[in-house]
Amino acid sequence: MNHATESHPTRTGTFILVWCALLALTGITVAVADLHFGYASVLIALIIASFKAALVLDYFMHLKYEERLFKIMLLVAFATLAVVIGLTFLDTAFR
């Protein structure tokens, strides 16, 4: 685990770049919403939001440099949520 803590130079530049990317993605998602893609616009908005969340998770929350255990835990949490959502839609969609 020590390799993760050794490579700890100042990441100020990286953080500011990530922040710029997040602002740009926010601009894109607002601009795309104006284009009226109909119901596909929700899908596009969610994909952009997922990109933004991934950037925050990976860099701001440090997950990219964390041990594998953290990533597995996050995967289990997301999988649980996905199963709950999937099962609910199996019910409501065919009612």
Binding site: T29, A33, V42, A45, L46, K52, A53, V56, L57, F60
Partner: peptide, 23 residues
Amino acid sequence: GALYWHFVDIIWIFLFPLFYLIS
């Protein structure tokens, strides 16, 4: 504390398009 703050940020990242941008 920062992890918590980022989590709150992520929730907003999803709330924003779902409520403001779907019109």
